[in-house]
Nucleic acid binder design. Structure first.
Lengths: 113, 113
DNA sequence: TTGACGCATGCCGATATAGGAATATGATGG
DNA sequence: CCATCATATTCCTATATCGGCATGCGTCAA
């Protein structure tokens, strides 16, 4: 088997640097495909392909606007990623002054995926 | 070109579900390869390969312990991921009652990658 | 030294990319 | 209806996996 399809998993979708750049750009508002392509220095088909992946995992939504198609951010799908990484926060934030909570959380962690 | 090498990017390294599981397990302490493989239902070579990727991006470290090799977590590399996704937090947390900060941040965002 | 054990690596096959080029599809204006 | 602009899709190539299997290598005990 090869790598899991990017199309089915947000973690995979944001593994691509250019797709992350697209998401960052979309934070400041909707944009048509061509403008995204121009701002990121990629071809129009390239932008369309990345946008398709992002759409299929639900991170962007598209809206017809006359001849153009405006892509907008729907970042809710990033929340699980934020929370998953947040589960490791105690390992980089300060020292282990919160060791109590750490030890008490162990049981729960065993059950997370 | 194909997809970027997982070995050079934390985002790619954690795009693999089994690798995420390994990281979760390691939160509760160091473990030898065989135990990880057993707990996650994968083969020993499979576990070794995933651990190699995680080691190359710096998310785990290994330590020789006699015949065994103990792998331990070094989750600092997850911090950039947590912070990057955190940059989208206002899009999922509550409504836009923090619209002021949102608008004021726009200039800075333009410069992020 | 010889096994036995734990782990890493090499090789293979099947698959999923990312990117480029050309083209198809869609919508708009005249 | 036609020409044009904006996007999407298809075809193709090179490459990077992931998983299974066999094997190499280092360490420890007898």
């Amino acid at each position: 088997m090869a790598r899991a399809a990017t199309t089915s998993d947000v973690f995979n979708a944001i593994a691509e640097p250019q797709r992350r750049q697209i998401l960052v750009l979309l934070r400041s508002g909707e944009r048509p495909v061509t403008e995204l392509a121009r701002e990121l220095g990629m071809t129009q088909p390239g932008a369309s392909k990345h946008l398709r992946v992002l759409r299929e995992v639900g991170l962007v939504r598209d809206r017809k606007a006359g001849k153009q198609r405006l892509y907008g951010l729907d970042a809710r799908g990033l929340r699980p990623v934020h929370e998953w990484t947040g589960g490791f926060e105690r390992f980089w934030s300060g020292s282990f002054d919160r060791l109590d909570a750490y030890v008490q959380d162990l049981k729960q962690e065993r059950q997370e995926e």
